[in-house]
Design a protein around this nucleic acid. Structure first.
Lengths: 130, 130
DNA sequence: TGAAATATATGTCCGAAACATATTAAATTG
DNA sequence: CAATTTAATATGTTTCGGACATATATTTCA
């Protein structure tokens, strides 16, 4: 909770907490889909590129990414195949399906709607003098 | 998960899911603080006015509101006292403390930052041709 | 040879909040 | 007046996402 950092008066940490809006909101799904739209990638690679997607909150955990990938495949949003790289262990390369592309579009529309709502909040906050 | 509604092809329900960005993100704290900034109110009243705050996602559960109120009081963001109304049972009226007012300002700044990030996402999405 | 990096995967735990139910008191209705 | 509904606050239980930790295999590097 925010209390911990609030007690030390660590404003930066607090900001992070509030940008994140609490636990459990890592935007894992849209991050993965967004990166895969640029082209196929394997899990570890996705992990590394996760930060390139401008979405709020801290970056997701490794385990969460792999688990999400399998769930996305079950849903048919991505497909995968094992490939053998010249160096290093086997890689499971994922690519976006057309269904996945549509899902990403849906996320994007939701985000657009969300921005509008948040802007109304900000306007209202400013207009109602404290 | 989204799967349920996705299977029936219910786009509206899907949108709701994605606006909400998954479970566990009800913005309960900022909603409460925002309403209390307008003046003191008791829990049941807050419940009813919850929808007046333009924040994304479905409205929070009754139980969640009361529990959150007690946690907010523990944190010193609100204070409460029992009052007896002419009609109906006792009411526990909450009011915002100065600490609570600061917390709301923090939320607002976080939301401002979040809007900026989300806008960058939208621009990037549009710029990277599908 | 042993450590570090690459890559994927699972086990366990925690916290936020839904869903359901309990409790009290007062108001309304039959 | 008894029975039901509404106002108001509160708790018990469950679910679910994701953190944190750990496991496993392979390859590279010191």
């Amino acid at each position: 909770m925010a209390g911990r950092s609030a007690k030390r008066g660590d404003l930066l940490a607090d900001m992070n907490f509030y940008i994140r809006e609490g636990p459990g909101k890592r935007f894992i799904e849209p991050r993965i889909l967004f990166i895969l739209r640029r082209g196929p990638a394997h899990g570890y690679e996705l992990m590394r590129k996760m930060g390139e997607v401008p979405l709020p909150g801290p970056l997701p955990d490794v385990g969460a990414v792999y688990r999400k990938l399998r769930r996305l495949e079950e849903e048919g949003l991505v497909s995968s195949r094992w490939t053998r790289a010249e160096r290093g262990p086997q890689r499971k390369v994922y690519r976006l399906t057309s269904k996945g592309r549509k899902r990403l579009a849906l996320w994007t529309e939701a985000i657009r709607a969300r921005v509008a709502i948040l802007q109304r909040f900000l306007e209202l906050y400013d207009s109602e003098a404290s």
